[in-house]
Design a protein around this nucleic acid. Structure first.
Lengths: 337, 337
DNA sequence: TATATCTATGCAATCGTTACCGAAACTGTA
DNA sequence: TACAGTTTCGGTAACGATTGCATAGATATA
């Protein structure tokens, strides 16, 4: 009830000025040791909590960071958020969530309506169909730092955190080759997206290294969902040369592939191998279990948040690009027998 | 660059006072139609955005609502959040996320360190092992409204939103009975949790209605994860009287049951039927697909957020309890052949 | 003793906005 | 013309904290 306790209350009770209380609380100016202790103990006793609107107003910093991403209802993003939350919580920052539904219009609207006075910085994973990134550049120009993760805007000069898409894909394809598959198809993400390209290149280079052909009909670009994975796989099964393995750009599409192959009575692993990317928990639940490249989602969340805090706290922190390695997890879907 | 445009800037340019600008912007006090238009158009032109720290300070309201929940890395909670976000976004509220990791200590620490000056209200789903809810009551006493969803603190007098656990469970068990199962076991949630009880009661009453026995050895309480579901199922298989159907408190445990049954070479559906609760997308992916009661997660998110906004905006909004029905989705795991 | 240096504190402006109080300027009425 | 009533607007004190500047008192230096 009543009103929350403020530094004025403390000042009045202790018969000192508000500035002294403020300094004692922030432990930053010279305040007599004894009065500082009196202030701190009274503050604790009264359960004093700073008013963030006031501090924010006075020193131009809220302790809020915004997180902008396509959606949270999948394993990868929800785990990234959990990682972000972990370091934010420890550093007393709050995270404010903005969900774009993977729509560039919504993304634009969110960014343009953003009250920057409310945020110290932004963590973003861009929506898959956003063509321009000017709106992000403007935010940065206005002085609010941004760190990108996963789906990055490559032409913007700021810190970025992502998994090692190229090497993950390379490793995935090599794993298939080592297990005796040679006609390897790739069901990719949407064209133009940064990590679609990287995984594609890893795929192509691994084939090249092992002297295998990359047939155009074996590479299909489409969306990220299970349905697309299914459709792509049906299309692959109609190829002139039928592939004997499928590298899917993510686990969702790998699941789609599994479903499609099962529907066609194909024995997965033996006849056609399947490998995904992410390590969604579903991989271990589905039968056959799916071999995949595990992405360090939690680590990515932690890292990008740490970087953002550095951007916030150091005036001109030099942008960094952090690439975290994935790890291959072999399961049934790439077992020859 | 420079500084964000404020109402002072607008006032100076238009040669009016800040109070006039403020009134024009909020469209609430008497201000001449023509000057109002001049102000609004200039504000739009300069891309004026209100400083929420300042408005928050001045009128004691931020436009932030806190969401406190166990975790977000599952289908149910991430969908609820998406629903919350949907209405919050439309009403220009931001959501600030607090993740308890389902630990009551963390929950307590979060709540106690909460700077209420930063939040207009709170949406919470309590952690499964929190025994006391005094900390929530204190928040409410201090004037910050709370709406509970899913895992509610039943002894606190405020609005609550949940799925219809009792009837969902009842319907699930009746579905099993209709499909010819009669020895129906229940792998439940942890004892003491509100919805564990409700689903248990639905189970018991459905059995009673159809004159079926409820054997004590067929009811097992444990955690919510797949692992618990597996362990519980192994235990069920050792019962004196082996059940011919399993009603799991949620899909995760149902999945565990599926895994355990498969490991024992039992034909699911034919020999033992399995039904879950939630409608996690995994239900359709796993083989056999899992019959379940679909929870209206998105609706729950929307509803609790709407209720919270009412609590925030109407001084003494009368608390409401909203119970949203689930819907049975029949799949392979309860098909006799 | 007079002066310089420090330490510890208070005063007051400031951040951007709201809202109360009053007062011009105008309208209409007697 | 005088007066009351409307509109429309400006001045200003909040909101809770930070911070540059000033200063009293204590201490050290010459």
């Amino acid at each position: 009830m009543g009103h929350a306790v403020t530094i004025k209350d403390i000042a009045k009770i202790l018969n000192v000025s508000v500035s002294t209380v403020s300094r004692a609380l922030r432990d930053t100016y010279d305040v007599n040791q004894e009065t500082k202790e009196r202030i701190l103990s009274l503050a604790a006793e009264l359960n004093y909590k700073p008013n963030f609107n006031a501090t924010g107003l006075a020193q131009g910093s809220t302790h809020n960071i915004g997180v902008v991403l396509p959606f949270i209802t999948n394993y990868y993003f929800s785990t990234v958020i959990t990682g972000i939350q972990e370091v934010a919580y420890n550093d007393n920052y709050n995270i404010i969530l903005f969900i774009t539904n993977d729509s560039s219009e919504r993304e634009l609207s969110i960014i343009q309506n953003l009250s920057l006075s409310r945020l110290d910085g932004l963590l973003v994973s861009v929506s898959s169909n956003s063509d321009s990134c000017n709106h992000f550049q403007e935010i940065i120009n206005e002085g609010t730092p941004i760190v990108f993760f996963d789906r990055v805007a490559s032409n913007i000069d700021t810190s970025k955190v992502m998994q090692d898409d190229y090497n993950g894909a390379f490793e995935a394809v090599e794993h298939l080759i080592e297990n005796g598959y040679s006609k390897i198809a790739h069901i990719a993400g949407p064209k133009g997206l940064d990590f679609t390209e990287k995984r594609l290149n890893g795929y192509l280079d691994a084939l090249k290294k092992h002297g295998l052909a990359a047939r155009e009909e074996w590479i299909i670009y489409s969306g990220f969902s299970q349905e697309y994975g299914e459709a792509d796989t049906y299309q692959l099964l109609q190829c002139e040369q039928r592939p004997d393995a499928i590298f899917a750009v993510n686990d969702r599409k790998a699941i789609g592939a599994i479903v499609a192959l099962k529907n066609n009575g194909i024995v997965i692993g033996k006849e056609i191998g399947v490998i995904g990317f992410t390590d969604d928990p579903i991989c271990t639940i589905i039968s056959p279990s799916i071999t995949t490249i595990a992405e360090p989602a939690f680590e990515i969340g932690k890292t990008c948040c740490e970087l953002l805090l550095k951007h916030i706290n150091k005036k001109h922190f030099h942008p960094q690009e952090v690439i975290l390695p994935g790890t291959l997890i072999a399961r049934e879907s790439t077992m020859r027998n």
